[in-house]
Design a protein around this nucleic acid. Sequence first.
DNA 1: GGTCATCTCTTACACCTTGTCAAAGTTATC
DNA 2: GATAACTTTGACAAGGTGTAAGAGATGACC
Lengths: 204, 204
Amino acid sequence: MTAVPARNRRADARRSRAAILDAAARVLNAEPDASLETIAAAAGVTRQTVHAHFPSREKLLLAVVGRLTEETIAAMDAADLDAGPAKDALIRLLDAGEQVARRYPGLLQKISTLLLSPQEDHDLHTSVGDRIERVIRRGRRTGEFDDRLPIGWLVAAVVKLAHAAGEESATARMTSEEARDALHTSVLRMLGAAADAGRSPGPR
Amino acid sequence: MTAVPARNRRADARRSRAAILDAAARVLNAEPDASLETIAAAAGVTRQTVHAHFPSREKLLLAVVGRLTEETIAAMDAADLDAGPAKDALIRLLDAGEQVARRYPGLLQKISTLLLSPQEDHDLHTSVGDRIERVIRRGRRTGEFDDRLPIGWLVAAVVKLAHAAGEESATARMTSEEARDALHTSVLRMLGAAADAGRSPGPR
DNA sequence: GGTCATCTCTTACACCTTGTCAAAGTTATC
DNA sequence: GATAACTTTGACAAGGTGTAAGAGATGACC
């Protein structure tokens, strides 16, 4: 229902649309308040052509976020989330997310802002949220995680913490390794996982 | 250095300034993209008067956030954060934050967006962040929290989780009690606190 | 290869918002 | 009550978004 090609569109139209989305992601990443004019120029088209593909600025932003979401779920689905311990799967999921997010650090900050209507927010985030939820549920069944906190809360909290980690490393307050480790440890603790996270044992 | 009255301003000027900040908080809470015209009208002044007090839209937004920050730190400082167990102090701190945030649910979403320059972000958030940090440090000294995660990360993560809880209850995905409980439990777990949080024992 | 629908470009316009300015009016303060 | 401070009114420029129509170019399809 999501990836329906609507109708056979002309090749140059598809090309323009892709160029606009590319340029929008690139430009907005560097300058979150860039005008449509700037984006159009970066895409090599005129502003009216942008309007021909995306009726309003908001729709364009939504399409950009949608594309990033698709990239993210693709990376997550490549991580074989149903295999192995849920703890490990969750870490693979977080790494997949980070892998996409690191390419658009500037958009990460604004991404939660752009989501205006609850409906659109739901439609977009639900695909990522569903995968997080699935892994958490599996971990609960296997006893790796406890089930004292509402699943909806945990999904929202994991997303927020992931964003926090992205910001910390994007602003160089932490290295990406530090942020990764802190995120993993924090999330696992929040889920009530037994032992501790990844590669950080060495106490004295 | 922050609350210096600059110079004796005329009474009506102070009144206007306060009315503008009030109206801005109120209007932006309901409609985050409201124009200066709308805000000015709600404050009972003209748009030019707004400009006389705040040179740009951004400065006004910053002043609004600053005011909310002041309210928040006031509420936190009234919570006697240096007394009793750090765990309890942290919960009082979170409740103080929620107490302010619940009055401006609409602003909560946008608040992280408005903070543009890293400098201003730091200046504003540092006052709240300092208090969180202080409590966490105390809890570490008393052994209530462990110290495996960087303090800076923990502060950022606590803020993010608090925002998540605010959003969950603002959008009615959770009741405020559920959100409160989930937030407390999550934060304490993340900090490596021994037992579990507040008033949620009742298993079956 | 030619035709036709489709897409893009140019030009043009209306509207809204922000920011600035100057002059006249009002208000508080000494 | 005189004066400085503040507000108001009116007016303007600049920039961004959204819309429209027609000419031109391009690709799809037969």
